[in-house]
């Protein structure tokens, strides 16, 4: 009986202590790791860079002789551009990843913020490689793209008489996400996307939908298309194909910046990692994922 009581007391104490500590000890003990989080588009690239960086240098002292002799620890989490900004604001992460323009209302909450544009991602208008539209009409005007995504054109036949009379399956990312905002700015310009559009929970799922469904059309990040070109059919918009040159030259319109943001001036360790990202090493990693580094622009 006594043992049980003791056990219960310990458990309940642990529970209450757990509850208390989250309220009272808000600032966690300062650890030396760098926490990075945000855009699901950018996170894999940054994670690759963090791996290379850690493997190359091992300890901070080897990065820069003035830094302490500590193991390099960098965490990268993915969760959306909104999360990137929010957690930079509330300090959950040291560096936020954002794959859209930063809103003025968000800048207001980060008075001392620093942000660095690493590169650009383009959203390709992608269809299934079996879709005959690739032969019939490989180039759409921005107006046609808008009509498809707003639901004005409901079947492929309405786009071109020689296409099959099958419904157009519009696939999009969630309506608040970074990709949707970039797409809205470049193409929709305030016109709402059709309510019948299927919302996919990640860019990977959106790419998968376009790969699997013959009638699907979606805006797929150029990074995904570059990784597996045979599985996507990419349409030009206003006669401009989303090639690296066109994106870098700013000719291809449906593009969005890839940004990293810090709440205040980054500390020495963060600064060193950010400099690594902004060096040739970082640019190569961004290029390897199919994005266009800011250097070329």
């Amino acid at each position: 009986m006594k043992k049980v009581l003791l056990l219960l007391l310990i458990v309940s104490l642990a529970v209450t202590a757990g509850c208390g500590s989250t309220n009272t000890q808000a600032p966690a003990p300062k650890d030396s790791s760098i926490k990075i989080g945000g855009s699901s588009t950018l996170a894999p690239t940054i994670a690759n860079c963090a791996n290379d960086f850690t493997e190359k240098y091992q300890t901070w002292k080897k990065v820069n002789a003035q830094l302490p002799d500590e193991q390099i620890v960098i965490f990268v989490a993915s969760g959306g551009s909104g999360l990137g900004v929010n957690s930079a604001i509330n300090g959950t992460v040291d560096i936020g990843l954002v794959s859209r323009e930063i809103k003025d209302s968000e800048k207001a909450k980060l008075p001392n913020h620093k942000f660095y544009t690493l590169g650009y991602d383009a959203l390709t208008i992608a269809v299934n490689p079996k879709n005959p539209v690739l032969q019939v009409k490989p180039n759409l005007t921005a107006e046609e793209v808008k009509k498809i995504f707003s639901g004005e054109l409901k079947t492929w036949q309405q786009l071109d008489a020689s296409l099959p009379n099958r419904p157009i399956v519009v696939a999009v990312r969630d309506l608040g996400g970074g990709a949707t905002q970039a797409f809205d700015e470049a193409i929709m310009k305030g016109t709402p996307i059709t309510k019948e559009a299927i919302q996919l929970p990640s860019m990977g799922a959106l790419a998968g939908k376009v790969q699997e469904n013959v009638d699907a059309i979606g805006y797929v990040s150029v990074g995904f298309v570059q990784a597996d070109k045979a599985k996507f059919g990419v349409l030009s918009v206003n006669g401009i194909a989303p090639t690296s040159e066109n994106i870098a030259a700013g000719k291809y319109q449906i593009a969005r910046p890839l940004i990293i943001i810090t709440k205040d001036k980054p500390d020495d360790k963060q600064q060193n990692f950010i400099e690594y990202l902004l060096s040739e090493n970082g640019y190569k990693a961004i290029e390897a994922m199919g994005f266009v580094p800011v250097r070329v622009k």
């Binding site: 909104g82 969630d174 608040g176 996400g177 559009a197 919302q199």
Partner: peptide, 30 residues
């Protein structure tokens, strides 16, 4: 399917409350 349409049959698409929250909370501004 996560469409914003009102379901009119069992075979139409729709977005449930939990799916709405899971999809959009990450990208919404606090």
């Amino acid at each position: 399917g996560n469409t914003l349409t009102m379901p009119d049959s069992w075979f139409s698409k729709g977005e449930t409350l939990s799916a709405l929250i899971a999809l959009e909370l990450g990208s919404s501004e606090a």
